[in-house]
Each structure stands twice: as C-alpha cells, then as structure tokens.
Design a protein around this nucleic acid. Structure first.
Lengths: 251, 251
DNA sequence: CGCGCGTTTGAACGGGCTCAAACCTTGTGG
DNA sequence: CCACAAGGTTTGAGCCCGTTCAAACGCGCG
C-alpha cells in the first residue's frame, strides 16, 4: 500500500492509521464520552462521568463499508483513526465523493431523517470508529449534552462540506486540485502530522470523483504542479515544496 | 414581476407568496410551535401547548437578506411563505447557490458551529419566516422536542442538499437543467400547487450558479427542451408538457 | 508469475465558456 | 404617463479546456 524505498518508515512523519495502528494503553479512568468530546474538539466543558460500555468501538479493514445507503439508522460515528470516503451514487450510476472523513469527523448525520443512512461510507485505510447509539443520542440521561455536541459537530461537517462544494466551482481543474492538496495539508496539520509531507489515502479516481473531474485530469494537474516546482509527487506520497504558491494557485 | 397577458392571475394556480401574500386568520388557539411542527412536516406527535410570543415572525421583501455570512447565530428559521436562495461566496468572488429554500425548509443550521452563519440567504420573493430562537432551541423547557425536531429537519436539508450536489455531476448540462426543472415541479407539487405550470422565482443566473454552468448554457438548455416539445417557456413561466420525457432526459 | 488495478502521458474531439449583440421586462424619476 | 436606465433573457460565433480513447508501465496480490 505504501511506497517505501530507502526512507524512514512513514509512521514517523505520518501516523496514518494504516495497518499498524497502535492501541492506546487503557486508562483506569477512561471515559468514552470524554474521548468523543475530545475527538470532536467540542469547546464546552464536560460534566458527566464516563459511562463505559455504551459507546462501542468499531474496527474496519481497508475497503470495508462503514455505512451503506438505506441501512437503518443506528447512531452516529466518530472517527478515531484512519481515513474513509463518503459517497453517493446517482441514478445513472455516476458516483460523487462528498468527502474524506478522518480523525475527529462525524459520520451518519444524514441518517436521522428517515431513520436510514443516505450515503455510503467506505474505509480507505484500516479504521477505528466510536459509535454514538441512537438511543443515547436522544435520551435525556446525559442532560442533553450528547445531543448538543452531535448537533454542533453536524453543523461543522455541513459547513466544511459546503466549502468543499464551492471548491468544485473553481474554473480551472488545476486550481481545484491545488486547493484539494492545500486542504489535505491543513487537515494533516490539524491532526498534528506533517503538513508538507504526507501520503494520500485515496486514489486519483476518488479525488476526481470528489472534484468532479476525470482521473486523467487529476494526474495531469499533479504533473503540472510538479513541473512548476510547487510539489513533489511519488505515487501516493506528496511533498509540498512551496505552500504559498500552492495557495495562490487556487484562484 | 409576472408576465400576465390575457390569462387568469397566477395566484390561482401558484400562490407563490409574491407581493400579495394573504395573512391567515389568527386562530384563538394558534400555536407557533404547532405551525413549525406542521411546516417542517415532522412525523411525531406534538405534546406541548403553544407558547406564543417565543417564535417571532420575520417579514422580508424581495431582495432583502435573511442571513448574512458571519452574522452571529441567533436561531434557526422556518420558511412560512416565499422563496429564497442560499449561497456562499468563494475567495475569488465566485458564488455558488446551494439551494432555493421554500415553504417548510429550515435555514441557518450551518450557524450552530462557531455561533455564526456560514452562508448567505437572500429573499427572491417577499418572504415570511418563523424564528426558532437559539435560547429555546437548546433549553430543556419543551422537553427536548424542539431540538429533536430541528435536528431531524437539519438532517433532511443536508440529505436533499447532497442530492442536489450529485445533480451537478451529471455530464450534460441539459440533463442538469432538466433535473432541476423536475425537482422544482416535485417541490411545487409537494406544496399543493401545480406541478406542470409554475413561475420560477429565480433568475437564469441563479440557476446557473446552482448547477455550475453559465447563464447562456441555462438559456440554451431551456430552448433545447422547448425544441423537443417537453416544456414551454415564457420568461419565468414554465409549463411542463411531458413529465416522463423530462425525467428521462435527466440521465 | 500473471492478473488486476492504479498511474501517467499522448492525441483528437466536442461541449461549455467567452465575447458580443439584440430584445424584452421592470423600476425610477421627471 | 412616458422616457430612460438597469438588468434579465436569448441567440450566434469562435475558442479552449476537459473528456474520451488509447497505450505503456509499475505495483500489489492471489
């Protein structure tokens, strides 16, 4: 899956949550609710103590589906580790990739309406999810805190999706690819990893389906950005040489 | 605003909520919460009695902004009457129209994250909105019912927005326009109006910004659909002659 | 090893954009 | 009430960018 030749193991500069995910040492006072709170980066204090056993973990291997369209709604999921893709399929078979959820992203909020998930979510790497059960979500037990938090996180996801949407509007395809790379760089940085050197977890085809262009166009855009010296590309591995130039390329 | 020649007034077949909106006679037991419930078509019984005065109405004239990007979050809005457009503006000035909210649609749920609205909403016709104050939304007074309802409606809005998004992916621009018209037809029908004869509240430019094409392309697509006898167009007025053909045109 | 899939690059076509002009509607102010 | 301005709509002509079709190569997996 990785393109490792004579370089240090990627885990040193990018803990992608690939096949060698490390299990954190269980804490004596471990609270799943607290972890959800932290993962979502919810910015209000948490009052309740941990209610273990309510929040199941869910492991996925690369390629497995986390959610299937039409599947009955059974709760929301927070990404703990790994990268996934969210996609919807047209009536005519055309697919569109809505986004690439990573650590801290919320999945499944489109399933509340009609009690069934409306999009498909597939793991790109090995993944680890935490489930927020529907029963807990809408129960008053935790004094609404959980629902508030989920609502807040949903709003964030929508906001970012809308931004990504407007990203599609950019006239030139190279600008879209540049903006996509810049977004990925910022997301990796936000997770504490290197913003200038990372391995894309998704294929060129996925990127194309996300930006509404073909595989070839994505590949050509990468080559063009390499040509002008803004980035270096070696299959899935991206090195950003000039971040400002990358941002300026977006418009 | 309308193109009335020797035909019956459009109000007979399309109460668009234009400049002559009719005020419903106030009921002795009128409940704003009940009306929000009905407008959103929330499918669970309402237990609480009406708490008047909490839900302010908001009138807008055509062209006025309902929400401005960056404006502090002060609650959600339910459309009671009229049509609006939701749009986001790119860094490079390019605009994208996310959708056209009408009766029963929910506005402002992207403002919960960061306590500020992240998109702009502009009235296309005279509009009438009901405000769900932030304080009420997150208070336990109405036993969570309101927050549940808002969450549910948000999920619906997102779902439909995603569908509209994938709509953009359709290869041919004529297919996108055909699908757009079919969607409008269904929405008018859902509101009890004529699905085969209506007046578009938005400009060709707005449609273009929604479908990611230029004004000229929208106009040409309309002409092409007229040419094959699927629709009739007279400026803003649309008559659908062959609905099946319109749907088949989408793919 | 061989197959499938992902990636890259080339060549040619075509659909949507750009630029331009004409016509129509709507709103404003004299 | 009319004239004018501003903006919406339609149609045409030419060009460019992204798609389509094709081929070659590398990698990972069975």
């Amino acid at each position: 899956m990785l393109n490792v030749q004579a370089m240090p193991t990627p885990a040193q500069w990018q803990p992608t949550g690939g096949r060698h995910a490390i299990e954190p040492a269980p804490d004596a006072h471990y609270s799943p609710l607290q972890e959800i709170h932290d993962l979502l980066r919810y910015d209000s204090p948490l009052r309740t103590s941990g209610e273990t056993e309510l929040f199941q973990r869910r492991r996925l291997k690369a390629g497995q589906s986390a959610l299937v369209m039409g599947q009955p709604f059974d709760g929301l999921y927070v990404v703990r580790l790994g990268t996934l893709k969210t996609l919807i399929t047209n009536v005519d078979g055309g697919v569109h990739v809505l986004g690439f959820p990573m650590k801290g992203n919320l999945l499944g909020f489109d399933g509340i309406y009609q009690n069934a998930y409306m999009s498909e979510v597939v793991a790109l790497t090995d993944c680890d999810l935490i489930r927020i059960p529907a029963a807990e979500l809408f129960a008053d037990r935790i004094s609404n805190h959980l629902e508030h938090m989920a609502y807040w996180a949903s709003s964030r996801e929508i906001t970012q999706e809308q931004e990504a949407y407007s990203l599609t509007r950019s006239v030139k395809s190279e600008a879209r690819v540049a903006r996509f790379l810049h977004t990925m760089s910022r997301r990796f940085e936000a997770m504490g990893w290197s913003p200038s050197r990372f391995i894309l977890p998704m294929t060129r085809r996925d990127i194309g389906h996300h930006l509404s262009v073909t595989v070839e166009t994505v590949s050509r855009a990468f080559s063009a950005l390499v040509q002008v010296g803004i980035i270096e590309v070696e299959f899935r591995e991206i090195r950003i040489l000039d971040r400002d130039a990358l941002r300026n390329f977006e418009r």
